Each structure stands twice: as structure tokens, then as C-alpha cells.
Amino acid sequence: MAAGGDHGSPDSYRSPLASRYASPEMCFVFSDRYKFRTWRQLWLWLAEAEQTLGLPITDEQIQEMKSNLENIDFKMAAEEEKRLRHDVMAHVHTFGHCCPKAAGIIHLGATSCYVGDNTDLIILRNALDLLLPKLARVISRLADFAKERASLPTLGFTHFQPAQLTTVGKRCCLWIQDLCMDLQNLKRVRDDLRFRGVKGTTGTQASFLQLFEGDDHKVEQLDKMVTEKAGFKRAFIITGQTYTRKVDIEVLSVLASLGASVHKICTDIRLLANLKEMEEPFEKQQIGSSAMPYKRNPMRSERCCSLARHLMTLVMDPLQTASVQWFERTLDDSANRRICLAEAFLTADTILNTLQNISEGLVVYPKVIERRIRQELPFMATENIIMAMVKAGGSRQDCHEKIRVLSQQAASVVKQEGGDNDLIERIQVDAYFSPIHSQLDHLLDPSSFTGRASQQVQRFLEEEVYPLLKPYESVMKVKAELCL
């Protein structure tokens, strides 16, 4: 049975990233139509530049190519590739079939990587351009969430054990800070992308030097003109047959890092959902379990974690691919890159769409948070109580021993009897502590235990987050809708 299948058929496997999760716009960027249309555009740009620099290419040939950029006979191309065992030459023939007058000058002087690699770089750039505003929107939604809850005390956790208090907004800023680093890295790697350009079979530009009869300047002009037509500021000066596969490492490393950030955020949300302090959106008709109707599973956060793990592992592909590119190139890269580049971007696209949807509907339960604080705060307040007693004339050592005994009794009630923490009640009825009984409410005010959390939130948002989001103001209103 021949390899390949009808990918629109229910009898043929289709990647869930495309069929179930990723956005239509990201799927289109990695589609065959987008790819092969870009090949034709690159052939047109090459012909236009070659004509401008004096090669015998007519206006009629150029116009014929322009008129057929979208006229792609995919069936013919597939048949040609089956016959020739070469995808680029299959599309040269297919393009030439609908451009008979231009057929002889299509791909003039070029090698397969002229269309293959340059198209990949265009796709990487455009895919990054799709991700950047999506990530900015996630940051914006979380920034709104953090600002609104900047002063809401909550129990902090280290080692997932109760620690000092923080605020809900401050905790959210930990998430935002990681995503801001990801946004900066995505922008950097996007701006650092260079075009492969017009380089020939081993990167020496020998074929173009021959076409222009040894004119170095025209060869350099050709490279520059096509690079500018493709919208790049610069091209690699040095290439082998391909652009260095280190570029793929750079791009997928940034995406993998984004995956790590999203995994951490969504894990926190899942843990908070278990504590009943916070939940992701839950639709009115949504079913959490087929057997347990009360369940409210954090399905979206779980999906993000599941896909983020996949995204983090994909960076190993370009690392290994770059390491086995012998001399000017081997074909070890080809099949692998067809999979890992598309999957990385479709996965990143999915987790950003999902995280935006989550961040637009996060639900906080202040009463649950308050109750958990009441359970733990008495123990945390013991040092403040000791200091207040010393100020009232008591002995630190005597007070410490009193607190120690009462704390152990209260802990026994919590752990052995399943009761509430009654340390404060014990202190309130103990005559030894009568000098500070009137101060206990103040000493137990949760806001006095959150330090500068709310001020940190305000400063972080104003100095770091809002300036970073400013270039994306025009796209901030787009909502994230999930079908599944």
C-alpha cells in the first residue's frame, strides 16, 4: 500500500493539533497551500530580480507567473513527485505547466533550498508574528487579574506546605514575570531571523556568478533584492546548502521555554482548584465526569500541561538535527523538520489560546482563602504575639514557653481530632496574655502579614508589564474561544 493518505478522510490519521486544537490561522501558515504558494512567490521574486539585473526574462513571463501564483494543481504535483521522487522539481514542473512561456526560467540558477529553506524562514517569521500578540493578550488578562487582587491576602506555599502570606495578585505576578520573559525572547528570536537568500547549491553562489558572467556586484544585488522582497532586513552571508540548523534550535528553545512557563502556571491553577481557592472557567453544560456528576475538573489547565510537556520535548529534535548536518548538509534534517517545526508552533498556539481562555474567566473564592488563612495564621502570628507581650512588660522566655504549650495543644486538636485551630481562643482565655487581649485582632490582621506584596504588584505592572504590552494595544480586544 502506498504511503500517505487522504487526510480529510475519517479513515486516515490526522494530527489532533490540526484537527482538534490549533487555530485556523496557525494551521494555514503550515498548510501545503501556504507552503507551495510561497515557493511560487519566491520563484517570481527571483525572476523579477534577475530581470532587473539584466537576464533575458520578459515582462510577459513575469506576468504569467504572477497570474498563476494561486493556480496550484495539487493532484498534478503529487503525481509528479511520485514520478520524480523530488518535491521541488515536482512543483517546478507543475508551475511550468500553467506558465508555459515562463517554464524555462522558473528556478533559474537556484537549488531546492532556495524555495525550501527560504519558505521555512518566512513561515517561522509569520508563525512567530501570530504567537506574539496571543502571548501579549494572556499577559494582559493576567495583569488585569493581578491588579484587581493585588491586596487580597492568601496563604503562600513553599514545598506545598503553608508559608508566609502573600497576595493573590502577587502570586499571579510570578506567572506574568515568566511570560514577559517569554514574550521578550519570542520577539528577540523573531527579529534575529535572517533570510537564507540566493546562495546556490553549497552556499557559494557559483551558479549565479556564472549567470551574471562573473559580476560579483550583481550577485550581491540579486541576494539583497530577493531578501528585501521577502520582507527581511538581512540575509546570511555564510550558508551551506541550507541555512544553519542552529536557527531551528533557537526558535524551538524559546517555544519550549514558553511551554515550561505555561505548565507551571496551569499546575498552580490545578492545585488551587483542589484547594477550592480558584477555578478555571466551567461552562453551564460542561460535564466533569461521566460517573461523578459533582466533579469540576480543571480540564483546560490539564490540557495545557499535557501539550506543554510535548512542546518542551520537541527542542531535542533540532538539537540532534543540527549535530548531524555533515559538511554542507545531509538530508537527516528533512523529514524531522517537516514534523517538529509545525508541531512546535501548533502546540504553542494551542496552549496560548487555551491559557487566554482560562485567564479571561478565572474565578476566585475569597471566603475559602480566608478560612485557610484562619487555619494557619495563628501559628504564624506567634512571633508577633511574643513581641507584643514583651512590649507590655512580659518575659520573652516565659511567653515563648506559654505559646509553645498552647500551640501544641491547638495542633493536637487540628491533627488528632480534625478540629479547627483554636490557638487564639486559648490565648484569649489565658490570664497571662490579658495585657494584649485587646491587640489580638490587630495582630491577626492578614494584611499585616503580606509585606509589600501589593506595592510590588503595582510597581511591576507599571514599570515592566504595561510598557512591554504597549506595541500590542491594537490587538488586545480579541477574545479566545474554545470549541473543545
Rank of each mutant, 00 (worst) to 15 (best):
I269D: 01
R300Y: 09
D32S: 14
T244E: 00
E473R: 13
E401K: 13
R396F: 03
G169F: 01
D182S: 04
A163R: 00
R372L: 03
F327S: 07
V368D: 01
L130P: 00
V315F: 12
Q164T: 04
Q397R: 05
P467C: 09
I369C: 14
F145W: 10
S412Y: 15
D73Y: 08
P318K: 04
Y21A: 00
G361A: 14
S12R: 14
E148D: 13
D117H: 01
A291W: 02
R85W: 08
R141D: 04
F449L: 05
L209R: 10
C180Q: 08
T227K: 07
F232C: 01
V368L: 05
R188I: 05
Q428L: 12
R404C: 11
D430F: 03
V262C: 14
V226P: 06
G231S: 12
L17E: 00
E481G: 15
G156M: 00
L252R: 03
F157K: 07
A230V: 05
E148C: 11
K367E: 07
H159F: 03
F379L: 06
R338E: 03
G109D: 00
T204E: 02
E417C: 09
K284L: 12
K479C: 11
E48Y: 02
V368W: 02
A308G: 12
Y34E: 04
D333L: 03
A480W: 15
I176E: 04
M26K: 01
S334D: 03
Q161T: 05
F379H: 13
K224R: 11
L108P: 00
E80P: 02
K246V: 02
R338T: 00
N118M: 01
I369N: 08
A322P: 03
D248T: 04
A18P: 14
Q205N: 13
T239V: 08
P366Q: 07
L209K: 08
P133G: 14
R338I: 03
I386P: 02
A291K: 01
T321S: 09
A47W: 00
T313H: 06
K82C: 09
F28T: 09
D87H: 02
A431Q: 13
D248A: 02
T227V: 10
Q241D: 00
D216Y: 12
G203W: 03
T330G: 11
Q285T: 13
S9H: 15
N384D: 06
E228C: 09
S12V: 15
A163W: 02
D129N: 10
R372E: 02
F379S: 04
Q439G: 08
I249Y: 08
A453D: 03
H437L: 06
F232Q: 03
F282K: 08
F232P: 04
Q416P: 04
Q221F: 13
L468F: 07
I72P: 07
